[in-house]
Design a protein around this nucleic acid. Structure first.
Lengths: 207, 207
DNA sequence: CAGCGCTGATGACATTCGTCATCCGAAGCC
DNA sequence: GGCTTCGGATGACGAATGTCATCAGCGCTG
């Protein structure tokens, strides 16, 4: 690890200041990494990325404003040279799949050590990909979402426990139609009712 | 800040290795703090505390095995000399209240900086208390749970979207009785059905 | 002791919900 | 062109749910 090579410019985006600061400090100890930007929300991450043009953006999955996958999508369009990776507390299978679809090159849980994270940042910067083995196994065994677009959409509206009438109103649909779609979703997921179905879909990251 | 005073012995418990390691590194830079133990789960935190007898235990609220409040409860009984504090990602009002009831002396969100955390550890060690102002305001405005014991218990069982028959079975109650309690809970919370009520109660930390 | 609140239960009733059959139009594919 | 799939809708039926009244035992409190 030569001292004279240009360091990798890293951006950290995480709403938990404690973690962001601590990780920034630890990564700063690595000679070949330099944390050039930090952000505490989705929109802020985009703004900082535009201003500082990092080589690698390390994004938390759950942030206020816009989640990590959304930020990665925007970054891919705006800064094609910027590699993106996602760090997450509890990673659900569906999230990993969506992340890879929008060009994210790294996906790791927060249970990794800082050393390991530094290595993965290097891996991603090099152009390779890295996905946590355990999350990958979960994603593979979980498979694809069996839900159609509308089914997932209505399940999402049903999540808060709202009655069918309200869901129908918010989706500009007939109550009967809403029941049909939700019934289909419930059957596909093997749930006992729409509320349980919504929980299952959420746990799989299918929402 | 004298170099010669006995350092404060700190234990960190958090299942996210990245955060734990990074915070430990940052706190280690403070002359008067020494991280003497780390744990990644509730039971492990208890075992480490017994072995290393820290002055202050910094506990994450959500850990596998036993949550921060449960660990704090055990620590209070086993190691009365050990002060406890909770660090949490998303703190709900009810959690703060329960934590204070079991003798926790600090309650902060993960959005604080490491410097601030170090200060709070000193404050707690000194015997004072510290509660994040924003979380305190939430807790005050949220007030106490209007739910009776059984109402909360049944709402918890209803959370997964299970049908009433299953809830009744798991609670060893008549389906009719379950409906009555849940109906009362729904009325008290101003919800539209038990599923929405469960969400409301969960958001307030009343479960 | 009388009153009150919590627990537990029963029965009745209206509403909501889940399920199914059926229909239509549009889009996509062989 | 025919077939299938999906979005969207209607109507009907039974089961699950929400609501209410009512009753009874228990423990606490004034």
């Amino acid at each position: 690890m030569s001292v004279n090579i240009t360091p990798i410019r890293v951006m950290l985006a995480d709403d938990e200041h404690l973690i962001r600061g601590a990780v920034a400090a630890l990564l700063g100890l690595e000679e070949d990494l330099r944390v050039v930007a930090e952000a505490a929300s989705g929109p802020e991450a985009l703004a900082m990325a535009r201003a500082h043009r990092p080589d690698v953006a390390v994004l938390d999955l759950q942030m206020p404003g816009a989640d990590g996958v959304a930020v990665a999508t925007s970054l891919r369009a705006e800064l094609p040279g910027c590699r993106t990776m996602i760090v997450t507390g509890h990673g659900r299978p569906g999230h990993l799949k969506r992340a890879l679809e929008v060009g994210v090159r790294g996906f790791v849980p927060k249970t990794v050590s800082a050393q390991k994270l530094a290595e993965i940042i290097r891996t991603v910067h090099r152009g390779s990909r890295y996905v946590d083995p355990e999350l990958a196994a979960d994603a593979i065994s979980a498979g694809d979402s069996p839900l159609t677009g509308r089914e997932a959409e209505l399940l999402e509206l049903a999540e808060g426990g709202a009655p069918i009438a309200e869901i129908a109103q918010r989706a500009s649909l007939t109550p009967g139609t809403v029941r049909n779609y939700l019934s289909a979703a419930v059957a596909k997921l093997g749930a006992e009712n729409r509320h349980a179905a919504a929980r299952i879909a959420r746990a799989q990251g299918w929402l």
